[in-house]
Computed example of a mutant assay.
Amino acid sequence: MEAETKHYKRVMLKLSGEALANDKGFGIDPEVVYRLAREIKEACESGVEVAVVVGGGNIWRGLKGSQGGMDRASADYMGMLATVINSVALQDALEKLGVSTRVQTAIEMRQIAEPYIRRRAIRHLEKGRVVIFGAGTGNPYFTTDTTAALRSAEIEADVMLMAKKQTDGVYDADPKYHPEAKMFTHLTYNDVLQKQLAVMDNTAITLCMNNNIPIVVFNIDVPGNIVKACKGETLGTLIERK
């Protein structure tokens, strides 16, 4: 019996900054970036419109900076700039593979990218371009998970794809420390909130819940998973209303 396949027209792919790094989780590894870009290209060629939000944790984490004594807003703005660096790196790899892209940033930096304009972003997607959203929401105190949820709602994405490193989905405990941990194949938004499962922050989950945006959490370390997720193949953990 074949696995159920959902047919997505437009997806939001959320990549952590660490996804662009090597096993050390720091910096940008060109080989890793090109692997991700090739998968995104294949997904686009299948007819799926792809938008991307990239984190900045491989370069800087605002929360960690604030815990070290830095002003939280300043630390978060530094994190937003880190996401732009990652966005430009991914754009470069995609363009070298012949994929038309646009980087849009919530903080204006016109020499590098377009300012975020919702209608323009949707038009780019309709023309088959990959749109990469950088600089978070443009506001401190918000994570890139929340950015991905917000942009998903704004561009009317069919699903939010959460690509995770070193995990196949959402577990009832951290499998690194609890080998007996069990993976969920299906959860509701309320399950995630009530069980305090470490999927993403509560603001992001609530945004998806309020706008009925399904979330798929899957392992990015497995080659081909981005394509499978974008095509709607059963993968990882599905989070939805019921």
Rank of each mutant, 00 (worst) to 15 (best):
I205N: 00
D221A: 07
T203M: 13
N202S: 15
F218P: 00
Y189I: 08
L197G: 04
N211Q: 11
L207D: 04
V222G: 11
D221K: 12
A204F: 03
N210P: 05
L187N: 10
F184D: 08
T188R: 13
I215V: 09
N212S: 14
T206W: 01
M200E: 06
N190P: 11
L193C: 13
L207V: 12
M200S: 02
L207R: 00
M209V: 01
A198V: 12
Q196E: 15
L187I: 09
I215G: 01
V217M: 09
I213D: 04
H186R: 06
N211E: 14
T206L: 10
G224A: 09
P214V: 00
T188C: 13
N212M: 12
V222L: 13
M209C: 08
C208H: 07
F184S: 07
N219I: 05
D191E: 12
A198I: 12
F218R: 00
D191Y: 08
K195Q: 15
T188D: 14
V192R: 13
A198Q: 14
I220V: 14
D191G: 10
C208D: 06
T185P: 00
F184Q: 07
Q194L: 11
D201W: 03
C208Y: 00
M200F: 06
V217K: 02
G224K: 08
T188A: 13
L187K: 10
V222K: 15
K195H: 09
A204E: 04
K195S: 08
A204V: 05
N212C: 14
N210F: 07
N210S: 11
A204Q: 02
L207K: 05
N202F: 12
N211T: 13
L187P: 11
N212D: 14
F184I: 07
K195Y: 09
M200C: 03
Q196D: 14
M209F: 06
L187D: 09
V199P: 02
D201E: 01
T185N: 01
D201Q: 07
A204I: 05
T185W: 03
D221V: 09
G224L: 07
D191Q: 10
V222N: 13
A204Y: 04
N210H: 14
C208E: 05
C208R: 02
P214M: 04
C208T: 02
P214G: 04
L207I: 12
A198W: 10
C208K: 03
M200P: 04
F218M: 00
T203G: 10
